[in-house]
Design a protein around this nucleic acid. Sequence first.
RNA 1: GCGGACGUGGCGAAAUUGGUAGACGCGCCAGCCUUAGGAGCUGGUCCUUCACGGGGUCCCGGUUCGAGUCCGGGCGUUCGCACCA
Length: 816
Amino acid sequence: MTPDIDARPSDTPPAPYDPATIEPRWQQRWAERATNQPDMDGARRPFYALMMFPYPSAEGLHVGNLFAFTGSDISARFHRLLGHDVFQPFGYDAFGIHSENYALKMGAHPMELTPKNVLNFQRQVERAGFMVDWRSKVDTSRPDYYKWTQWVFLQLYKQGLAYKKAAAVNWCPTDKTVLANEQVEGGRCERCGTPVEQRFLEQWFFRISAYAERLLNNLDTLDWSNITKHAQRNWIGRSEGAELQFRVDGAEETVRVFTTRADTIYGATYLVLAPEHPLVDQVTTPGQRDAVRAYQESTGRQDLVSRKSVKEKTGVFTGASAINPATGARIPIWIADYVLMEYGTGAIMAVPGHDERDFEFAGVFGLPITRVVAAAGSDASEPLDTAFTDDADGYLVNSGAFDGMSVAEAKGRVTAWLAEGGHGKAVVNFRLHDWCISRQRYWGPPIPIIYCDDCGTVPVPESQLPVELPFIPDFKPDDSGVSPLARHEEWYRVPCPTCGKSARRETDVSDTFLDSAWYFLRYPSAGHEDVPFDGERTKKWLPVNSYIGGNEHAVLHLLYSRFVTMVLHDGGHIPFEEPFTRFRAHGMIIREGAKMSKSKGNVINPDSYMEQWGADAFRMYLMFLGPYEEGGDFQDKGIVGVRRFLDRLWATVRDATSEGAPDPDVMRKLHRTIKKTGEDSARLGYNTAIAAMMEYMNAMRRGDRVAHRDEVLPLVQMIAPYAPHLAEECWETLGHTTSVFDGGWPTFDPAMLVDDSYELVVQVNGKVRGKVQVAMDATQDAAVAAALTDAGIAKFITGEIRKVIFVPKRLLNLVV
RNA sequence: GCGGACGUGGCGAAAUUGGUAGACGCGCCAGCCUUAGGAGCUGGUCCUUCACGGGGUCCCGGUUCGAGUCCGGGCGUUCGCACCA
C-alpha cells in the first residue's frame, strides 16, 4: 500500500514514512519473489557471505547480535548490488551448555525449549530484514545436522586424530563437566566463573597439536583482522628452543627438559620436575619419599586457579641429583608446582641467574646462583641481585669455550654442541594442546563410539548414524564424572557393530565447538540427506568469501574450524584447507558509556526500538554510531538523527521532479559520494559511508530546492544495503517494478570528480592565512601570484619570501 | 609481567602519502512556522578576544616549511596471553 501522496499538500512538513506498513510488506515480497535466494547450482558469480550463527537464548536477540548481523548483511547486500550471486544463510548453534543451563534454570527441557527459542530468533531476524536464504537454515541440535557432526568425529577417528586418554582435565564443579583449555580463563570456568578443579578422567581428544605449525603458517595467507591473527598466534604459542637431557646421577634415568635458553646451560644449577612428572617416584630417595609424596598431594588438591597463579615459590628436594652435561657438575633435582606438566616436557633446567622464577626459587631454598650472561660493557664479576634475562645484548661468561659469544649466536652453537654429545636436540614447542571434546553433559551429539569387551573401541558405522540423543527427563548433570546418559542402560546397551555381542555406547557428548566447527560446510548443502556436504555445491560456494563475527571467538571457534577444515581436506573430502578467505571482527556495543548487562538493567531491547523507529532506522543507527570494527556507544537519543535522514529521503523521493536537468554541482557531489560510499562499504567503513550519504542529502536539499529524480535515484541505490525496506519503497515510487537489489550499484564517472579550479590553502610560516581560488593546473608561480593579490594574505608577508612550498591541489606555504 | 590497540569539542565520532583539526550526527542556542509541540524548516555552536589576533588533538621533548598523524620518554584506558621454561 503506497501512502496517499496527493493527500499531503506540498507546503506541509514532509510526512514521515511508516515503517510499520512498508517493512512487513517488503519482507513479504522478498519471500514471494524469492529475492534472497540465489541459484545454488547455476550461480555465475557465487559469493558466500557468512555471519557467525548465534546460540538461540530464551531472551531473544541481543543488540550485539543485531549489530553483528547488520554489518554482515550490508556487506552481503553490497556485493549483491555489485553483481554477485550472494548466498547468505542463517542458523542456530542450538546444542551446548548455554542452552542446557538455561533449560535447567527454567525447569524446562532443552528438547522442548530450544525449538521455541529458535522460532523467536527467526521472527526477530526476519523483522530486521536480513537478506537471508531461509532454505538453508541449520540447527545443530537436530538429528539431520548432528548426524554429520558425528560423521566428522568419525573422519577424525579414521585419520588417527581422535584418541582417548586419561588425563588431568579441567573440571568445572558448577557446570559439572570437563572444559577445554580454551574455555578456562584465568583458572576459572569462562561460563560461570567457578574455579576449575583438576580431575583425572578418560576423555576424547582431537590431535590439533599435530596441526600447530600449519595453523600458524597459514595465517600469513589469510585476509583476516590483525587482532584475530595475533590472538591465534599467541594461542598457538610457537617457541623455538632445545630439548636437553640430564642423566640422573647413579641411575639409568634421564630427565628431558625444554628450554629456550640453551645458551645458559653452564648456569643450570638444579633441575625441577612438575609434581606429577612420571620420573618423580623413580628418582626420589627413600629419605625424601614422605616429603615428596606430601607435596604431590597438596599440589593435586589445588584448584587450577591457585595452581597457575603466581605466588610464593614452594617445592621439595627429591634427594636425587643429575649431571649438567656442560659442566659435569652434580646438580640437585627438585619438584615444584611452578613447573607445569602440560607444557614442554614437564621438567626444566633451572638457571636462577637468568630466569626470574628460578631466581626466586633459588632464593627461597638457598640454591646456587651463577652468572653466565653479562650485558656488554658491564662487570661480569658483580653478583646478581636480580635475574638478568635480557637476551638481546648479552654475551656469555663462565661458559667455557663459549665465553664472549652473543646470546643469539650461543643459543644455536650450544645446542649443536650438546646434540653432538648426545645430550639433546633443537626442538620447536607449542603452547597449543590437544582439544578435549568429551563433555559429561546431555545436550550435545553423543560421541559415536561403542565399547565392546571383545573388540575394544569400535566406531559406530557411518550407516548407523545418527546416534540419536534420546529424550530423557533426568538430564541434569551430577558430580559423578559421567554424563546423564550413563544412567540409561536401555540407551547405552547396544550390540557391538563388529561381533554382535552386548556392548556399551560412549555416554559422553561432544563439545559444542565441534558443532560449529563445520556448519559453514553444511549451509550450501542443507537439506541433502545422504551427504554432509555436496561436492559440487561445496566447490561452487566455498571457501567462505566473507565471514564476520565477534573476536571473542578468535581462538576457539575460528581455530577449531580451521583445524576441522584441514582435516577434511587431508581426508580428501574438500578441495581447500582454509575455510574463511576473509574474516573481519566487529566491535562491541556499549550503551551511554557503560557495558550492557542484565544486572544493570540497561540492556537494549531490539524489538522495542524496531517498533518505535523501524528496522531500517535501527539498523542504520547501529552502523552509524561508530566504526564497525571497533564498536561504539549506543546513545538513546542518537537514533532520531538517522530517522530524520530517512524521513528526508522519503520526502525527497516523493517530491522529486523529472523536469529540467539535474544541477551540475549536485551531480559532481553525487559522483564523489558514489565513490566514497562504495569504497567505505567495501571496507566495512559503514559510519563514514552513512555520513557521506547524509552530506549528499544536505547538498541536494540545500535551501528549499526540490531534488531532481536523477539526483536522488542513485542515493536510493546506495542506501539499499543499509535501509533495504525504505530503499525498495523509494525505488518503486520512482517507477521500478523489480527489486532495487537487481538494479545494481551506481557507477561514478571519474571525469565528474575533477573540478576546473580549487581552493588553495595559503600558509605563511606554516600558519593558515587565507584561501585563494586557482586553476586545477596552476603552477607554483601562478599560485604565489594569486596568493599575493589577496590582501588578507599579503599583509603577513613582511619581508622577502625565503622559501616556497607548493603542494598542488592542497596548499601553498610561504616562508618569510 | 609480556604483547597488541587506543587517547581529538558537552556527547558519539571524522580527518589519503605528514598539508585548512572537529566532516556527519546527537545535544544546545537563536529565528521561522504553528492553537500547541518531545513535529518540521533555516542559521549558529572548540576556547579566548569588541575586533585584529592568539591558543587548541592526554603530558614532556624531538624531526619538519608544516605533526592529531612520524620518532623518544611518561601518564591513562582497553584487549589478548600469563609461573609457558
